[in-house]
Design a protein around this nucleic acid. Structure first.
Length: 115
DNA sequence: ATTCTGACAGCAA
DNA sequence: TTTGCTGCCAGAA
């Protein structure tokens, strides 16, 4: 019987795919990705997927994914220091108080932009 | 097997 | 407007 336990990996792959498609200097939210994957409100799963994204061989710009508030809630998972903020600022995104400045302007909606 | 937590978000009061 | 609870799915204890 083909495929069974790895069925949900499709969701993970989708998260990685969308995350990798986030343009340079742009950010998106967990909910936006969840919505694009038609997973509804399972935004927490997106975070879980990104949590294990570091186990993936490919580079996942998870630093471009923040919560709906534009806050870098996952910064602690990047390392001990402000690695996430460093990466974002390196792309021209200004971060202030763990929050993306002009988040609304930098926001990239996969459901809308990526279509 | 049951319970709690987690890179969130929506809705009720 | 802010605060708090609930829903979502999966994994660890």
């Amino acid at each position: 019987m083909p495929g069974k336990k790895k069925d949900n990996d499709d969701f993970f792959s989708g998260v990685y795919e969308v995350t990798s498609m986030i343009p340079y200097g742009r950010v998106t939210s967990y909910g936006a990705i969840a919505r694009y994957l038609a997973t509804g409100r399972s935004a927490r799963m997106v975070g879980w997927a990104l949590n294990v994204s570091h186990t993936r061989p490919e580079f996942i710009p998870a630093h471009r994914v923040v919560n709906r508030n534009g806050e870098l809630t996952g910064r602690l998972h990047f390392g001990n220091s402000g690695t996430m903020q460093q990466l974002l600022e390196n792309e021209g995104i200004r971060v202030e108080d763990n929050t993306v400045v002009d988040y609304r302007d930098k926001f990239w909606d996969p459901s809308k932009e990526l279509r």
